[in-house]
Design a protein around this nucleic acid. Structure first.
Length: 937
RNA sequence: GCUCAAGUGGCGGAAUUGGUAGACGCGCUGGAUUCAAAAUCCAGUUCUUUCGGGAGUGUGGGUUCGAUUCCCACCUUGAGUACCA
């Protein structure tokens, strides 16, 4: 009976589905374990072999934990709102919901073939109204909350209204808009309802504000900072410009410090934590106020180096700074305006590409130094960013290279305030080696002391205070798209109103086209039925808008990250209609124990999700404030492209090693046309694309050999390998083993289908181990010492490997075990049963099949993981006599369970050792326990 | 520029606290089986060699009886980030 993987795999996949083998219960005597993959966006291209890598790893871990007696939650779903389906709709008119449904069906089919142990009864789709009801609900909670910096948590906005009624906002410590004015209780009472709403909006955790946004004209939408790469859109690579628009924003900046601190409590990779730290960008320093001479104005600057305050020789404002127009002298007005106009024209991208060009202009105005009262010229320069700090800097050319270059360029003084440092060539920025000089009361102090003293003196003068700044900006939350969650918001007199939970979800309306309207409104502006009737509490036709009981609805939709910021909580209780997750469910599952996904989400999804988790924790909907305890980034699987060489201006192609003789161009051809020794199937190529139909080929040794290039797996390089094809040819178990065998999980690695024969042969040998000839043959014979040794070293190694996520090496361990047991002619049930349990997380189908042949009527899934028993192993101790040169080494066999003292005594009485020592006493004896492998005598 | 990660055979990659470098697999070579091929099985496969050995984990130093592993400097590659004051 041969290993018929296709039949076996189909059989067990059907069995698992029918029996609901992987259904997780929300209450169980067992300890819980929650393993999650980042859910996929179902794209039209389907899965390639790179996608399942992380899913296979998490599946192995989930199955392992089930063997270990855990109640495992291992769900899967789809992040199904997104741009590609909408772009497709714009081109073809097909509703994105249809495209998405088709893509999901295809994904599901592909995923099912790999034999994952997902609990599909908990599937979520972000574009499903039943799901996005809760996305809308969370939005409303954010709207109804403000951040109390005193208690350091989000609170109900009603509490804030009560405070305003009682004592105005002067005592409130909250995160709010910069331009919020102060008012008393009496003021508050006198305000109209609209003014009150405007003020509250400045405190809400999601708020409507005119902000400078990244506008992408090509995509017709705004983008968040993390959706822009190198100044162009992440999707499509279109240019992005700055534009002022009224947009919803998320006050994530309120959580900057907690997002930073929380990193200490979670087991995520250092590089990922580092990315988040950089993105949050905390810097500690001081805010200093410089008076502008002959005017009522003051310039606020942020600096991390208050110790260098006596080195200030000019100030620089960002061109967009609001004071520019107010302080520029009449003589300078014309040139300043000209300069501002010129810089405004330059896009963000140009400004970045061209950082070396120094540009700036003098305003004619002077500020006054807080201590020396000396005049300081005020300049404008585009190296100062309006969006960071206060949009103005105190320039210390001796201590900052940019200030130094600017001063050199415009011939401004460069006073030296550092003890014993030469600044004739460049600025000196080394804080550690800094000793301050020429600075009055700071002379002789180091960086730390001078910073403290300067800040203290500034505070005394009421011209400065210690301050911490974050680079993290509030996240723009509006998108001018169709295929996203609609906001549960309507407008009365221009002020946003939330729709009550009872009436959610507000479902996406139908539109006849998915493009912005002629007047530049988002696609929802085309919907005829898109107004809110506050009496009927339902969406009604736009014709009925009268602004008394029928009001216009919000036309923007939410960004892609909205739905993915809480889905992991929804899996705990996916069908709950009363809450996004019940208290019982979330108290049981708490948070994700192991989360696996790509590192590209470091500053997007993974940051936003932490933000929402903390918010929902503050408002007591969740019991923990971090959503994932441990996170692993799986590496990308790269494609191995195949290259043919065309002789220039001909239709003749030469084999790889002959290409040096001609002038050639490289063309990529489909990798399926290449065999395992890089030989091209010429006949198949001719049929592949018409341009090759009449091509000629110059061969080497009768073969056409292609060049290979490792690069990202992509349709455009023709290097995509699909998992379905592999499953058909070698089986899902081979695919699973091979993906793990390729290399360490977290590392990027190239795919090469040829190598899969190794693991495939292993599975065939495993099958043979349980059969003699055609017959299934497992006996009740007592295992030999050798058999037990092989089994137990395998148990130990596999257990350690899985715990450390070194899935690649355990595949090797299985191969060694099967080879050894084959050589030992082992057919003992006592060995072969536990061996199957070890292998089953990796190759579940073959394990189930052999398990049932062993006479078991239930799935192998919850069979206990075999116990490791060290007494079956021996260990060698190696003794290195240090009084000798050379590589003298002795081995002796010792039982593993001896204590360290026992081992030392045994070694010292060891005959060979004593001979070598020849009566001398060594300075020390180093005992190295050998590896738990097969070393005997 | 800054931050992080990584450099080991023809290839993917092993090597637990420093202790026989190259496990395991691919590929390659030879053999068995076969009319032949596929499949399968067995042996070999870091380089070099006068067959004694010698060299060897990016480069150069250091610590150590002993370094792929620890320390310093440099080179290369990949990832992230960037006028952040």
């Amino acid at each position: 009976m041969s290993y018929d993987f296709n039949t076996i795999e189909a059989k067990w996949q059907a069995y698992w589905a029918e029996k609901g083998t992987f259904k997780a219960e929300n209450n169980s005597e067992k300890p819980k374990y929650y393993v999650l993959d980042m859910f996929p966006y179902p794209s039209g291209a389907g899965l390639h072999v790179g996608h399942p890598l992380g899913y296979i790893a998490s599946d192995i871990y989930a199955r392992y934990k089930r063997h270990k007696g855990f109640n495992v939650l291992h769900p899967q779903g789809y992040d199904s709102f997104g741009l590609p389906a909408e772009q497709y709709a714009i081109q073809t008119g097909q509703h994105p919901a249809i495209t998405t449904k088709e893509n999901i069906a295809r994904y599901r089919e592909q995923l099912d073939k790999i034999g994952f142990s997902f609990d599909w009864s908990r599937e979520v789709k972000t574009s499903d109204p039943k799901y996005y009801k809760w996305t809308q609900w969370i939005f409303i909670q954010l709207f109804n909350s403000w951040y109390d910096t005193n208690l350091d948590k989000a609170r109900d906005i009603k509490d804030l209204e009560i405070i305003f009624e009682q004592s105005g906002n002067t005592t409130v410590q909250a995160v709010c808009d910069e331009d919020t004015r102060s008012f008393s209780a009496e003021d508050w009472a006198s305000y109209s309802s609209k003014v009150k709403q405007e003020i509250l909006l400045k405190y809400r955790l999601t708020y409507l504000a005119e902000t400078e946004v990244n506008w992408c004209p090509e995509l017709g939408t705004v983008l968040a900072n993390d959706e822009i790469v190198n100044g162009v859109s992440e999707r499509g690579g279109y240019p992005v410009i700055r534009k002022k628009m009224t947009q919803w924003s998320m006050r994530i900046s309120a959580y900057a410090e907690r997002l930073l601190q929380g990193l200490e409590t979670i087991d995520w990779t250092d590089s990922l934590k580092e990315s988040q730290r950089n993105w949050i960008g905390k810097s500690v320093g001081a805010q200093v106020k410089f008076r502008v001479q002959n005017s009522e104005f003051g310039i606020e600057v942020f600096t991390t180096r208050p110790d260098t305050i006596f080195g200030v020789s000019f100030m620089t404002l960002a061109p967009e700074h609001e004071l520019v127009a107010k302080i520029t002298t009449p003589e300078q007005k014309a040139v300043v305006e000209q300069y501002i106009e010129a810089t405004a024209k330059r896009s963000e991208r140009e400004r970045m590409a061209d950082v070396k060009t120094i540009s700036g202009i003098f305003t004619g105005a002077y500020a006054e130094h807080p201590f020396t009262k000396e005049p300081i010229p005020i300049w404008i320069g585009d190296y100062v960013l309006a969006g960071y700090g206060t949009g103005a800097v105190m320039a210390v050319p001796c201590g900052d290279q940019r200030d130094y270059d600017f001063a050199k360029h415009f011939g401004i003084d460069i006073p030296n305030i550092f003890e014993g440092i030469d600044i004739s060539q460049e600025a000196f920025a080394d804080k550690e080696k800094t000793i301050i000089a020429n600075s009055d009361f700071l002379n002789g102090l180091n960086y730390k002391k001078a910073t403290k003293t300067a800040t203290y003196e500034l505070e005394k003068l009421r011209q400065g205070e210690g301050k911490t700044n974050y680079r993290l900006r509030d996240a723009v939350f509006s998108r001018q798209r169709y295929w996203g969650e609609p906001f549960p918001v309507y407008y009365v007199d221009g002020m946003p109103q939330m729709i009550d939970l009872k009436h959610l979800p507000i479902e996406l309306p139908e539109v006849e086209k998915y493009l912005p309207t002629e007047t530049g409104e988002p696609p929802l502006g085309r919907a005829d039925v898109w107004a809110w009737d506050v009496e009927k509490n339902q969406v009604v036709s736009n014709d009925l808008i009268n602004n008394t009981n029928v009001f216009p609805l919000e036309l923007n939709t939410m960004p892609g990250w909205a739905g993915s910021s809480f889905y992991f909580n929804r899996y705990m209780d996916p069908h709950n209609e009363e809450a996004f997750v019940s208290k019982e469910a979330v108290n049981y599952w708490e948070n994700i124990d192991l989360y696996i996904g790509g590192s590209e989400h470091a500053t997007g999804h993974l940051l936003y999700a932490r933000f929402w988790q903390k918010f929902l924790f503050d408002r007591e909907y969740l019991p923990v404030d971090e959503f994932a305890k441990k996170l692993i980034n799986q590496g990308m699987i790269l494609g191995t492209s195949a290259i043919v060489y065309r002789i220039s201006e001909t239709n003749k192609y030469v084999s790889k090693s002959l290409k040096g003789q001609y002038k050639t161009e490289e063309l990529r051809v489909d990798v399926s046309l290449i065999n395992s020794s890089d030989e091209l199937d010429i006949e198949a190529l001719k049929k592949w694309q018409p341009q090759f139909k009449d091509a000629e080929f110059e061969l080497e040794g009768g073969k056409y050999i292609v060049g290979r290039e490792v690069e990202k797996m992509s349709k455009r390089w023709f290097n995509v390998v699909n998992p379905d094809g592999i499953c058909e040819q070698y089986g899902a178990d081979s695919l699973r083993l091979y993906e793990m065998f390729l290399g360490p999980l977290e590392q990027a690695k190239p795919w090469n289908t040829a190598g899969i024969t190794g693991v495939h042969n292993f599975l065939k040998r495993l099958w043979k181990l349980y059969h003699s000839g055609e017959e299934f043959d497992v006996t009740d014979t007592t295992p030999t010492k050798e058999n037990l040794k092989t089994l137990h070293k395998t148990i130990k190694k596999v257990e350690d490997d899985i715990e450390n996520f070194s899935f690649n090496t355990s595949v090797s361990t299985f191969m060694i075990a099967v080879n050894e047991l084959t050589a030992q002619k082992c057919s003992s049930r006592e060995i072969l049963e536990p061996l199957l349990v070890l292998i089953s997380p990796y190759a579940p189908h073959i394990a189930e099949e052999l398990w049932s042949k062993l006479g078991h009527s239930t799935s192998i899934t919850t069979t206990p993981f075999p116990e490791f028993d060290a007494s079956h192993l021996v260990e060698s101790a190696k003794v290195y006599p240090i009084s000798f040169n050379g590589k003298k080494r002795f081995e002796m066999e010792l039982a593993l369970d001896l204590s360290k003292d026992d081992i030392e005594a045994a070694v010292m009485s060891h005959e060979k050792t004593q001979q070598q020592l020849a009566g001398r006493t060594p300075k020390k004896v180093i005992i190295v326990p050998g590896k738990i492998i097969n070393i005997v005598g």
